[in-house]
Design a binder for these strands. Structure first.
Lengths: 349, 349
DNA sequence: TCTCGTTATGACATCGGTGTCATTTTTATT
DNA sequence: AATAAAAATGACACCGATGTCATAACGAGA
């Protein structure tokens, strides 16, 4: 590999002068600069960040840990991994714009390896660290976030680590509010597993929307139709819909915990000969385009702003690195809005 | 940041001895080793890869370029990005196992930036480079792959660069073969955009399956139902299905260019009151679980082995880096098998 | 106890850049 | 033309690890 010394020799100047040319330092004479540039091009010289960062103590690297792999089986193209990708892309976008380089690691299937990955990051002297979760949850990183600038994306912890999460409550509330304003007063809600953070926040949003619109909360309309430990929740959904349809006053609209659940619901209702949205309105959550736009009628849902979360997490980290943010340790959690995406699966009545 | 000198001082030994302990070098006395270990722990010392790699000329880094972002709009959670994630995961898995660290960069929306990313990789002295495409295609990297070990995943070029791609022809052939063996002799095929590599290879597989089973090829049954420059190909699919159903001898099974197309077809057929699979059988391509397993009836499809492609690409790169592979420059392209995933959307007749 | 052969440890240079400070031009001023 | 001020360049040390070689400590046998 050619070094700065080779360039210096070829150009007939000192290494330091080459360094000055590289960094656009003042002052370098025009003729000298040209000679050096020529030598650099001729030799195909590329400076070494290793040497550079050793002197400057700045690696220009950002560590990124994602837990995607551990959440889906090896053989399948499962959709669970998608959020990570979008968040990572958002992060990448911002980091690239700011000249940082991403060091990405996946936890694989063993949770214990996270500390190993972080160790590797430390060896590379990353300037900061972002942990990306595949769904909104609470986590517990195996490091003191004091020792290294850390931002949590799509998750949070109990140590007041800076974190960025979606606004699940507001998202669900906005959706239900809009559904009610379309004339629906019997709005059912098929929730995700109660162990998920989003479930509680969205349920709260659901209730809040009912309350603000003067609609009574009916526990009969709220059912869990998703269990994390189940491979296939189809039976849960069938049971739930059977229950809802058997009610004295059945719902005219059903909100699903996510788009995938809505997709299954479409199939189930179709078998029963129930038309969407004429006979019943459906909404999802996630704005998982492969489903929402592919379905007929297209599915009304709430957009989970993964790219935004990633971008915001990256910005927060850059702020921490710059060190200009030492005054506001109380605003550790940033909440990103989740807009409603209105399509044709909800009927105005 | 604490250095090896701090540790040496704390342990009362020379830096070199600390180095020996770190690398498990012989010979180090038992007492000395303990002292040093204690000092390392006490100071929370983590060695610097920058310094290490400067001396050894080995960075332990692998560069990874993906073009995902440039292929879908910013605001949407489009599914197009999914393949990249799986390939990256496969790569990550293998690289992690071999102790390499991944440097990941996304080309963003400007194709020109690839060379900039590669430049950054060179500055970090990556030991090799993997380019990941979001779908099977031909590309043209802006570097001589001679100057740096390179492997292309899910794509290939005209310079005999080592590459790993899915077996599109065999995948489609196996699927159609199985469909025919279920009793279907009128098998339609709705293809993707003809500009895609996969389209030609799969069409060939389709024809090959017909031929081997003694079924005549009927051009009337093969229609393009997807254009890259179209936002929404629904009308294309509707026209295609209308054409197929108007034939004197309509198809009993329809193979779609991908699962997303099949998803739309489900909706269209449902509106027409045509039952799947009783009245017509459907197959997809990709094994995009969110769709294939969510649909009712579950969609028969061909699995695109993205993880496998990633893993294989990683293995190929490691071989290149090891330099033990200089004898076989002719086997530049590795083809990974795409197995048929049989579900309920094809009826035996 | 002394020598010899291991075994354990340290001194020093080096990897490729850059900060500091000194030195040599060049340009401007009188 | 002499001189000061400014601009351009270079010498050298240093960042943190490790390879090379030298030296010190140790243990065994005479």
């Amino acid at each position: 590999m050619t070094t700065i010394y080779n360039v210096a020799e070829a150009a007939g100047v000192s290494p330091k002068t080459v360094s000055r040319v590289l960094n656009n330092d003042v002052p370098v004479g025009e003729k000298t600069r040209k000679k050096v540039d020529a030598a650099i091009t001729a030799l195909g010289y590329v400076p070494s960040t290793a040497a550079r960062s050793m002197r400057s103590n700045k690696s220009g690297l950002i560590g990124l840990v994602t837990g995607a792999i551990s959440h889906f089986s090896d053989a399948s193209n499962a959709p669970t991994g998608l959020p990570d990708l979008f968040i990572v892309q958002g992060i990448q976008k911002v980091m690239q714009a700011s000249g940082k380089t991403l060091l990405i690691a996946d936890t694989g299937d063993s949770a214990t390896s996270v500390s190993h990955l972080i160790r590797t990051f430390q060896e590379h002297r990353v300037e900061g660290l972002i942990y990306v979760a595949n769904y909104h949850k609470q986590i517990d990183l195996p490091i003191a976030s004091k020792s290294i600038h850390t931002v949590l994306a799509n998750c949070f912890d109990t140590n007041h680590t800076t974190s960025v999460v979606p606004n699940d409550q507001m998202g669900q509330k906005s959706l239900v509010d809009k559904v009610i304003k379309e004339g629906h007063s019997r709005v059912a809600y098929l929730t995700l597993d109660p162990s998920m953070v989003a479930t509680h926040q969205r349920l709260e949003g659901y209730q809040q929307a009912l309350h603000e619109n003067g609609v009574a909360y009916d526990p009969e309309l709220v059912l869990c139709a998703d269990k994390l430990d189940l491979i296939d929740n189809e039976k849960l959904i069938i049971d739930a819909i059977d229950h809802l349809l058997s009610l004295a006053s059945p719902p005219t609209a059903i909100c699903c915990g996510n788009d995938k659940m809505a997709l299954k619901l479409y199939g189930i209702l179709r078998v029963k000969g129930i038309r969407i949205p004429e006979q019943i309105s459906i909404a999802g959550y996630d704005n998982y385009l492969a489903i929402t736009e592919g379905l007929y009628p297209a599915l009304t849902t709430v957009h989970l702003p993964y790219q935004e979360i990633g971008q915001e997490a990256a910005r927060q980290l850059l702020k921490l690195i710059d060190g200009k943010d030492q005054k506001a340790p109380n605003s550790a959690i940033t909440i990103v809005d989740s807009p409603v995406i209105w399509r044709q699966s909800i009927l105005k009545i």
